[in-house]
């Protein structure tokens, strides 16, 4: 067996286990769906991953700062390079129609409700 093939799955698992920052989020719900905003400063579009797997929504991003040569950190409040946060989606949300936008370090996710879960007005007739 090739040793490299043994190493890479382990390395991938190791990366997902690496301690990560928990981004601050806001979650708003309206009649047609849910909007999630997440603060991910330092994450560019290429280094962001939003995944829906079954009921699980996971947001992961990697911080990429332009650090000059010879930089010595003297004080750090952001001490990790990854962000990760996982949410569980409820049944009435439409996994296939999740849309995402990243703007100036803020991720906006829109998760619509499936058609039949949207509120319908039932008319009450006077007989």
């Amino acid at each position: 067996m090739n040793q490299n093939t043994d190493v890479s799955p382990d390395a991938a698992r190791e990366a997902s286990r690496e301690p990560a920052l928990v981004p601050a989020v806001n979650v708003h719900e309206d009649a047609s769906g849910i909007t999630l905003y997440a603060d991910l400063p330092g994450v560019s579009r290429e280094r962001l991953s939003v995944e829906v797997d079954g009921d699980t929504l996971s947001i992961e991003g990697e911080l990429a700062l332009e650090l000059p040569d010879g930089l010595e950190p003297s004080y750090a409040e952001v001490g990790r390079r990854r962000y990760r946060r996982v949410f569980t989606l409820s049944k009435e949300l439409d996994r296939a129609k999740v849309s995402a936008a990243l703007n100036q370090g803020v991720l906006t996710l829109r998760i619509p409700k499936v058609e039949h879960a949207q509120p319908r007005r039932v008319e009450v007739r006077v007989s």
């Binding site: 601050a24 806001n26 979650v27 708003h28 309206d30 009649a31």
Partner: peptide
């Protein structure tokens, strides 16, 4: 009809 479920951002 709107609701705020999580409110963490500054």
């Amino acid at each position: 009809r709107s609701a705020v479920h999580i409110d963490e951002r500054f």
